[in-house]
Design a protein around this nucleic acid. Structure first.
Lengths: 169, 169
DNA sequence: GTTGAATACTTCAATATATAAAGCAATATA
DNA sequence: TATATTGCTTTATATATTGAAGTATTCAAC
């Protein structure tokens, strides 16, 4: 029975290690990508979101990026100064400002190809059909596990709880 | 055949969306966790690495975090000022500095329980055995796909290449 | 429709993050 | 023993980030 709890423990460790590798690789890569585009990482994220979403607003950017509106104002300032995005007053609500990407900004995004994403897409396409399906399912499950709002998890998971995992098979 | 390429395309989209959700959730959470520990996110990462690794050095921290040594010096300065870590001259190589966490710093880490990780561990423990195994396998595969150093991927993946994925079943 | 609260955004002041370049010791190499 | 390299810090500078305060607009309640 000790071996079984160890199995759970090992799997948790392995999955956390893999997760950290994913986080580290993508974060490190984001810097290179931003540098290639000639902007800072935070500015690049604004560009990416503004490029994808129609009618992006500072508030929406702040929420999406997890920073304050004040921060977004500064980031947008920098990008406006360089002609990468533009501020367009909203027609519907004059309190709002729509941040839209310029042709120049869109070009800058195209010119800095996201090699990491391309590498992923390439590798993914070469997987067997069932592997692809499994990967999507697993990633979505992990995202759900992390994202879950409805968490009635006890604030601290004790060592006892961890070792008494319910899948000791 | 069009349906098949669409299947690949959809799966790629789904997996990228799930990946972004994972990245976003963990990043947003890192800020809350740092705040709970009374430090900034960058400082917390130093604390976490120093806590896990024996004989951490500024160079090693810089590599691990993907920032310059100068940045690490500043971060360590802050943490030293607050008694969270200490600089200990290396015995082996007197150019090196070992950054070690203090009891106080270790306590600060314990006092700010990583709810996100706990949530993950809890949810993981409740999965069926085969699901756990699949998750670990998938995460490791994704980490490998992103991490791959041996990348002979063409610099830009064209739309044609994407649509002509090899798993159109 | 006038008042008052809420919303969206910006400005300001202060701190944190990040870097390159230059400098200093200690080590390695020749 | 010169000389180069390595590990780290200092300095100067730019960017990021925030809370708090301020402006303008909208909404809600009379």
């Amino acid at each position: 029975m000790l071996a079984m709890t160890n199995k759970l423990h090992n799997r948790i460790d392995e999955s956390l290690i893999a997760l950290r590798r994913i986080l580290r690789t993508t974060e490190l890569y984001a810097r290179d990508l931003a540098q290639a585009a000639g902007v800072t990482p935070a500015q690049l994220r604004v560009m990416q979101i503004v490029d994808e979403v129609d009618n992006a607003t500072p508030k929406m950017l702040a929420n999406q990026m997890g920073v304050s509106q004040a921060t977004v104002t500064v980031l947008v300032d920098k990008l406006v100064m360089r002609g990468i995005v533009e501020r367009v007053p909203s027609e519907l609500d004059r309190r709002q400002v729509n941040v839209v990407i310029s042709d120049f900004g869109q070009n800058a995004l195209k010119e800095a190809p996201d090699a990491l994403q391309q590498r992923y897409v390439h590798a993914f396409a070469e997987l067997a059909d069932w592997e692809q399906a499994q990967l999507v399912s697993s990633l979505e499950r992990v995202a759900d596990m992390l994202d879950a709002k409805n968490t009635d998890v006890s604030p601290v998971l004790t060592a006892g709880e961890l070792r008494a995992g319910k899948n000791s098979e």
